[in-house]
Design a protein around this nucleic acid. Structure first.
Ligand SMILES: [Mn+2]
Ligand SMILES: [Mn+2]
Ligand SMILES: [Zn+2]
Ligand SMILES: [Zn+2]
Lengths: 156, 156
DNA sequence: CTCCTATTGGTAATGGTTGTCATTATCAAT
DNA sequence: ATTGATAATGACAACCATTACCAATAGGAG
């Protein structure tokens, strides 16, 4: 979807140009779709959303660009166990900020949470330090997910 | 591989019979393969290992049984980003015990670690409590992974 | 031993993702 | 504004891990 108000962050001025990539219509459209949803979208979801405004943009192009955007850190790719990857804007480019996921194993509802971070921060810091020291790893990232059954699925 | 010494835990007496499942040759072979490796195996890996001793056991059977074993909690399924699932015995049936994973994003080496658990325990307890309370989730499980670049890949 | 039915194995199908390649579009340099 | 090098695109085919299907087999309670 074309940026509705002219005041939003123009992707043009973001990470993309700096990395030697060109700013193209599909790229922009994909970022706009991701910026305008609260959900975690599959490549197909994004393709369909983009398709409404640019019917000639292909699914292959969506996949290719998601890969690029993940590589330059503007988008994050997740596997929640559904058999297809889900994407969302990375912390820096999203209004959500740093968060993790609570996933229902039955209906695959995904909840973003950023509560209870005090304990997480200290846990992460000490664990990352310990691990990188002991295993000589250059740690760049972490993945924390909780799984369970949501309220709706429990009462069913 | 057929259980090498007659003294190991016979899967026969485990979880399987209790759940109404039958103990079959393929089932036993798959569990033996998983019990005799330190690695995280794909369905194909397991199929090939089983195939050496029971050449007539099919890949489909391996997949079907892995699903059963995951469902009754004897096996755990992981996605490390390679595009195929990896399997290992669950904590209770493995000599490894409770642990998490440190994954190299370049070569997909996976390290099991169970260090630095003191901080994790308190983090998990408070976060699980907070989340299940706030979001009315019945939390059953968690996934913690650290990603980075291993020593070998860094010097290359 | 018999019977019920869970399980198997072979093969085809599915579905998400990636490769190919001729064509097009971006943008730095003129 | 025009040009040119090349990044990016779109249509389609190929890939590959996983599932569905179904007739044949085998576990194990009685
Ligand atoms: Mn999220
Ligand atoms: Mn492990
Ligand atoms: Zn649910
Ligand atoms: Zn590595």
């Amino acid at each position: 979807m074309p940026n509705q108000n002219g005041t939003g962050p123009r992707w043009m001025h973001g990470q993309i140009k700096c990395c030697g990539y060109r700013m193209t219509k599909p790229r922009e459209a994909i970022l706009d779709v991701l910026a305008n949803t609260q959900n975690h979208l599959s490549a197909e979801d994004i393709y369909m959303a983009v398709h409404k405004f640019y019917p000639n943009i292909g699914l292959t192009t969506v996949y290719r660009n998601l890969e690029v955007l993940v590589n330059i850190g503007m988008v994050v790719k997740f596997e929640f166990g559904e058999g297809k990857s889900k994407y969302e804007l990375s912390d820096e480019y999203s209004s959500k900020g740093h968060h993790h996921h609570l996933v229902c194993k039955e209906c695959y509802t995904v909840i973003d949470y950023s509560d209870f971070m005090k304990d997480e921060v200290s846990f992460l810091k000490s664990t990352e330090n310990g691990l990188s020291e002991k295993y000589k790893f250059n740690i760049t990232d972490h993945l924390i997910q909780f799984f369970g059954v949501c309220e709706k699925c429990t009462n069913k």
